[in-house]
Design a protein around this nucleic acid. Sequence first.
DNA 1: CTAATTTTTCAATAAATTTTGAAATTTCAG
DNA 2: CTGAAATTTCAAAATTTATTGAAAAATTAG
Lengths: 168, 168
Amino acid sequence: MKLQEAKQQFIQSWGVLGNQWGINRTMAQVHALLLISEAPLSTDDVMEQLNISRGNANLNIRELMDWGLVEKMIVPGDRKEYFVADKDIWQVATRIMAQRKKRELDPMLKVLNQLQEVEGDKKDPAIKSFTETIGNIRKFAGHAEKTIDTIIKAEENWFLNSFIKFFK
Amino acid sequence: MKLQEAKQQFIQSWGVLGNQWGINRTMAQVHALLLISEAPLSTDDVMEQLNISRGNANLNIRELMDWGLVEKMIVPGDRKEYFVADKDIWQVATRIMAQRKKRELDPMLKVLNQLQEVEGDKKDPAIKSFTETIGNIRKFAGHAEKTIDTIIKAEENWFLNSFIKFFK
DNA sequence: CTAATTTTTCAATAAATTTTGAAATTTCAG
DNA sequence: CTGAAATTTCAAAATTTATTGAAAAATTAG
């Protein structure tokens, strides 16, 4: 497989994967493109390489910046803005986990907490059954949240460790 | 909040969450409905409670069975099929993780492995840079896969433990 | 400041996904 | 077997989501 072909393949696959996980396909593709670009890219570069419109490129680049996965770069003597993706894959994973936790898990936990306080006789089997199920889910979600934090902390050095091993 | 209202709220929120994670909203809602139903439900029950068509209900129930989250139940003396969701939230999470790993992570890993074998001079900076980035992602994905398995094993008793504590 | 260049916005359009519902198929009690 | 009841299929329709592109706004070199 030639390099250009391989790059296209990667962009394609990263897009499919992102899409399956509820992330806009184009956003994932822009991310992939920046991940495998050695030099920073301008909006025009992204438009050209992915065959997308200016509006679309702009939208997704800004979205990636919101996620903390891409940064703006100013090239002195150039009017255009350039963009680079964080190449540290551990940082990438951590940022994505943190964002999704904040945007999706936390709101769900909030709802689950509210649902615990359902009105009525606590001994009514229907109510008991409902609060028990919700309680279990809530407890699990809370646990999962802590586990994620633990993983993030515990594995923080994984990347570093793989370098240490390399030099041993 | 009344029980009925709380149930609706849960179904709604579970649907939104599923949708954000790339799971069909209705599938998540059917799952939610079955999770908080004490008794097994028929296709007609699901249709009625969620206001969806027969075809849609049938499709999503079968999809949930494919995921191993819902089981068919035969009620003797009744021609209809009934369905129940696995209420063990740990089982639910494990099944979802396992399915997604198999359906999405594994294919991505396969692609990444192929991309490592790009043609050309290994000393060419462009090729070196690409294979390095891909290599890091591949290594990370492999690590993540193992971590997931480890968590599943290590946390297997979390649910059991929360019962043990309860009886202490 | 001015004007050229770049970025952002957003209504219209296109694409992708989901849903419907009726017909075809399957199942099973009698 | 038979036929009523239930399940499955699938093309068409509806809905949701993503994309375009041109106009408006913002930026900056001179």
